[in-house]
Write a protein that binds this DNA or RNA. Structure first.
Lengths: 152, 152
DNA sequence: ATCATACATCTTAATATTAAACTATATAAT
DNA sequence: ATTATATAGTTTAATATTAAGATGTATGAT
C-alpha cells in the first residue's frame, strides 16, 4: 500500500470510530431524555435555561447550535407542554425572554441528574487518564477552523 | 471538591468534547455533500450501494442505522432524482432490490472522493499516533453495551 | 424626522427521523 | 391445507432541521 493510501485508510478508520462512539453514547444517554418525553433539542433548551437562567431565543440557539427558525418551533412545543414561557421584553420588543415554568424547572432538574449519571456511567469505561487523553484529542478536532462558516 | 464530583466533572467535560468534535467534523465534511445537493442520509445510502452493490432496503437501513420507515422516504427522494432505482425481487416479492442508476453511480464516485479527502484533511490535525490513540479510545465507547436495545 | 441598516423572531417548503400501526408476502407448525 | 408467525416495506403523526424570505422593531446617519 502506498503511503497516501495508508494515511487515507487511517483517517477514514479514525473518523468512523469517532462517529460511532458519538452516536453510540448519544443513543444510550438519550434514552433518559426519551423516558421523560423530551427530544434532545428540548432537553438542550431546558438545560440551557436551567444553568443560565432566562434567555432570549437567539442566545438559546447559539448555545445549542441550532437555527433561529428551529428554536421557534422547539420553544413552541415546550410551551405547549407548559415547560417554558415566553415574555416579550419591554425595553426591546424584538426579544422574547424565555424562562422555565415551575414544572419545567422540576422536570429538568430530575432529568438532568439522570442524564448526568448516564454520562458518568458511559465514561467510566475509560480510566481518568484515558478520558483526559480523549478530551484533548477531541478538542483539537472540535475547534473552529478557517473553513467554518461565520456564525453571527 | 469531593472525589465523585471530580469524576463527574471529568466525565461531563470529556463527553462535551467528544460531541463537539463529532459535530464539528460532521459539519465541515457535510459541506461536500450539501454542495452536491445530498443530505447525509442520502449520501449514506448511495455510499452503501457504491461499495456493496445492490441491497434491499432493510440492509441499507442496517448499514446506515436508520429505521425502515425512514429508508422508504430517503429512497423515494433518491428515486425522484433518478439516482437509484427499485426492482421488486422475483423470488421473494417482499423485497425490493435497490441499485444505483448510471447518474447515481457517477455522482457518488465524485462526491465520495471529495468527502474522503475532506476527512483526510480533518484528521491531518492529528499525528498518526494520535489518530490511532483516538480510534482505540472511541472504539471502547462505541461498542454495543448491555443496555443497548436489540437491533433485529 | 426620514431612511437605511441591523436584528429578533416567525413562516414556509423540503427533507429527515422515529414509533406504531398496517399491508403484503413468506415460512414453519400442525 | 390451514393457521400462526415472521419479515419487508409503507403509511401516518409528531417532532426536528435548515434555508430563505417576511415581519416587526431598534438604531445610526443624514
Amino acid at each position: 500500500m502506498k503511503s497516501e493510501e495508508k494515511t487515507a485508510y487511517l483517517a477514514l478508520n479514525t473518523y468512523t470510530k469517532l462517529m460511532r462512539a458519538a452516536e453510540s453514547v448519544t443513543n444510550r444517554v438519550g434514552r433518559f431524555m426519551s423516558a421523560a418525553n423530551l427530544t434532545i433539542s428540548q432537553f438542550g433548551v431546558l438545560e440551557a435555561l436551567h444553568h443560565k437562567g432566562p434567555l432570549c431565543q437567539r442566545d438559546i440557539g447559539a448555545k445549542i447550535l441550532k437555527s433561529t427558525g428551529n428554536i421557534t418551533l422547539v420553544i413552541d412545543n415546550l410551551e405547549k407542554h407548559q415547560l417554558v414561557k415566553r415574555e416579550r421584553n419591554v425595553d426591546d420588543r424584538r426579544y422574547f425572554t424565555v424562562s422555565l415554568t415551575q414544572s419545567g424547572s422540576m422536570l429538568i432538574a430530575r432529568v438532568f441528574a439522570d442524564v448526568e449519571s448516564a454520562i458518568v456511567a458511559e465514561m467510566a469505561i475509560l480510566s481518568e487518564t484515558e478520558q483526559v487523553s480523549l478530551g484533548s484529542l477531541c478538542k483539537k478536532l472540535g475547534i473552529t477552523r478557517v473553513t467554518d462558516q461565520a456564525k453571527t
